[in-house]
Simulated scan of single mutants.
Amino acid sequence: MTQIICSIVNTQEQLARCFPLMHQLRLHLTLEAFLQQTRQQQANGYQLLQAVYGQNICGLAGFSLGQKLAWGKHLYVDDLITNENQRSMGVGGAMLKWLEQYALQHDCDQLHLDSGVQRFSAHKFYLREGFVISSHHFAKSLALAE
Score class of each variant (00 low, 15 high):
S135R: 13
C18I: 02
L35M: 11
N83V: 02
W98G: 00
I133D: 07
F34P: 04
G93S: 15
S141Y: 12
L75Q: 00
R17Y: 06
V132F: 08
F19N: 06
H123D: 08
A143W: 10
A51V: 03
M95I: 13
R87F: 07
Y76G: 00
L48S: 05
E13K: 10
S141C: 10
Q118E: 12
F63W: 12
A61T: 13
T38L: 07
L80G: 02
G72I: 06
L48I: 11
K97A: 10
D107I: 06
L104S: 09
A70Q: 10
F19I: 01
Q47L: 14
N44I: 04
T82G: 03
F34S: 03
C58G: 01
Q86C: 07
R119W: 13
L49T: 05
G45V: 02
L49D: 02
Q40P: 05
F125L: 05
L25W: 03
E32P: 08
P20S: 04
G130T: 06
Q40C: 05
S115N: 12
T38Y: 04
L127T: 15
S115R: 11
K140R: 15
Q86M: 08
F63T: 02
Q14P: 00
H28P: 03
F131W: 13
L60D: 01
S115Q: 14
D79L: 08
A143Y: 12
L31A: 14
L49S: 01
A51Q: 04
A61N: 03
G54Q: 13
Q42S: 04
